[in-house]
Simulated assay, not measured.
Amino acid sequence: MTEVQGVYATKFKEVIEANSDHKVQIYPFGTLGESVDVMEQAQAGILQFVDQSPGFTGSLIPEAQVFLMPYVLPEKQTEINYFFKNSKVINEHFPKLYADKGLELLSMFPEGRVHITTQAPFESPAELNGVKIRVMTSPLLVETYRSFGAVPTPLPWGEVFGALQTKMIQGQENPMFFIESTKMYEVTEVITDIGHNIFTTAVMANKDFYDGLSDDDQALVQKAIAEATDFILDYQQGLEDESIAKIKAAKPRIQFVSLAEDKRAAFREASAPVKARFVEMTGQSGKAILEQMEADLQDAKGK
């Protein structure tokens, strides 16, 4: 429960239980199956709430993959926080898309910069040629890593560590805290930041369940969501540096690489066509989502 999502869920539980007679039971990731199993349980009403990245819901809600698009989200933390709390695309557009799938979108929040773990260093798309990188089951992530020069390999999370151990794949991507907490560094030699994305997650409720709550209980859920979101944004300050220190202590020989802007430019250029592929995959709905997101990000600049 020390993962970002676990900390968020714990805060949500605390607020609900402190302000009502309701009890919240938390199931850590992996205890109820893989991501596809958990989403099916939430849609069926077996689970009342679920926290899942758009990377896993890409086939269910293709437009949600906009959060996986490389080099779109800002790197400045204050701008990221402002965008996630105030953007129209999150607060107005996405709730309708999730509702169509039987889900009430309650919140989206960032979990930290995405880093790529590999067995050898790389500084250009050419140096990733033939390297098998595990990605979430998202068509857009497949397109992104193909543009980066790698061989994208969709795998359920439960298979990743073993696949790296057996050299079936050579790398994967995740925020630094997750690389540390899952001990992914044990089967990794290099951790690289190319500045391409922020890991995003979405908190949802089964829509029938949520709509059946009293006005007071819906207000309580919204209060708990708001407090948990504020809490988790503060909680993450310094988390990446702490995780790096823990990894260095556990494996001193591991290499940390942050590509300079001139090196990142090659990845930006190579992945530029991914934006057009997103629109091809999602049609007019996706095009409207992308345009609103770009307007929201422009609004967040300098905040």
Rank of each mutant, 00 (worst) to 15 (best):
P273S: 14
I80R: 10
F109S: 05
S285G: 15
P252K: 11
A300P: 07
E75D: 05
A270C: 10
T182P: 12
K96Y: 03
E186H: 07
E17M: 08
P62F: 00
V72P: 06
E189A: 12
D262T: 11
T201I: 01
G158V: 10
I26Y: 02
G162N: 12
F148Y: 04
W157N: 15
A205S: 03
R146E: 04
T10W: 00
K223M: 09
I247M: 09
R264C: 07
V257S: 10
I61V: 03
V66A: 02
E34C: 14
Q172F: 08
M281L: 11
E242Y: 08
I26K: 00
A224D: 09
A249R: 04
M281P: 01
A272S: 13
Q236P: 10
T200R: 02
L106N: 00
K275D: 11
T118D: 09
I289K: 01
K96E: 13
T118A: 10
I133V: 12
K251R: 15
Q236G: 06
V89N: 07
S59D: 15
R268G: 12
D208F: 01
L220H: 11
A44W: 05
S181I: 08
F209W: 11
L105R: 04
Q298C: 12
S35V: 02
N174S: 13
P139G: 08
L103P: 07
Q236L: 06
L233D: 11
I90C: 01
S59H: 12
F94V: 04
Q284A: 15
T2G: 14
L128E: 07
V15G: 05
L239R: 09
V221P: 03
T57C: 01
V187M: 12
K248Y: 02
G102H: 06
K251W: 10
A272D: 14
I289F: 06
D299Y: 04
G149F: 00
K301S: 10
A265K: 11
T166M: 05
L213T: 09
P252W: 11
I116T: 14
T201R: 04
Q222A: 02
T10R: 14
Q43T: 01
L140G: 03
A245P: 11
A150P: 00
A42I: 03
M168T: 14
P28W: 02
K23H: 10
T153L: 03
N91I: 03
A205D: 02
N91F: 06
A9L: 06
L233M: 14
E75A: 15
K207C: 07
E291V: 14
K251H: 09
E40H: 08
Y145F: 03
M176I: 13
G33N: 09
D208P: 04
K223S: 10
S271L: 00
P154L: 02
M1N: 14
R277D: 06
T201L: 01
F256M: 11
K207Y: 04
K101Q: 06
V4R: 02
L239F: 00
G130Y: 10
H196T: 09
T2I: 15
R253P: 10
K85V: 02
R277P: 02
F161Q: 15
A265T: 13
I232F: 09
